[in-house]
Amino acid sequence: MSVLKADHITINFGGLVAVDDFDIEIEKGELWAIIGPNGAGKTTVFNMLTGIYYPTKGEIYVDGEKMTAKKPFEFARAGISRTFQNIRLFGGSSVLDNVKMAHTMDCHYGYKDMVFRGKKYHAEEERITKESMELLDLFGLADKRDYFATQLPYGEQRKLEIVRALATKPKLLLLDEPAAGMSPGEIDEVIALINRVHTEMNQTILMIEHHMKLVMSIAQKIKVLEFGRTISEGTPEYVQNDPLVIAAYLGGDPDAHA
C-alpha cells in the first residue's frame, strides 16, 4: 500500500486556483521531488498534505487511511512530518528541547507519572533524551544541544528542522527547500545527509527544492508544477529533457525545443 496518496487535490483561494488537480502516489522507500517556479503552488501542496489547508476538491490518504478534514497533529500522528520553507523552530527553547518536543506524541506516561515522577517517567525521559541525542549526533548538532535554537547559524537551523521532523519517526518526511539560503559547501553536505537518511534509515521522502543539482542528483521521481498545474512527471533524465519544463524555466517556446 502506498504511504501517501493524494487523489486529484485542488485548492482555491478566492478566485485563485493555487493547486489544480494534483495527483501523487508515493511508495515506501521512494524519494520524490517537486520543482517549479516561484508561486507555482509547491508549499501549498505541502500545506494540504499536513492538514494546514483543506483541499477544495480531492482526497488524501495516508497508509490507506482517509485524512479528509483531519487536523495537522492528526496528520503527524498518521506519520507525516515536515520542515518549513520559512523556518519555524521553537525559538525560545534549547536545541535538545526542540527535538524532545517532537517526541511528545510518542511519550507514554500520563499526568500522574508526571506529577509523582514514577519509574515510567524516568524510563521514558531517558529514552527520549537518548533518541534525541542520537539524531542530533547524526546531523552534527550534538554539541550545540544547550543553545537556543535561534542562536544557531542559518544552515544549522535548517538541519535542526530536519532533525525535529525525523524525531516524530515519520512514514513520510516532507522537506520544503532544505537547502534554501545555504552556501555551496553546505548544499553538498545537505545532499549527503538527505541521501543518508534516505538510504540508511530507509526514509520515504518528498521534497521541494530549487537547486537543480540537488534534485537531479538524489531524487528518483520528480513532479514539475507551474501555476498550480502539473506540467511534467518522471525520472530526473526525463523531466530534464521535457520541452515543457525547459520552457517553464527558461520562459521559451516549448515547440522550439521539440
Binding site: I52, P72, A76, L89, G91, A102, M105, T168
Partner: peptide, 10 residues
C-alpha cells in the same frame, strides 16, 4: 514558541 510547528509535530 510556535503553535503551527507544534501542531505539525503531533
Amino acid at each position: 514558541d510556535n503553535e503551527i510547528a507544534a501542531d505539525t509535530m503531533g
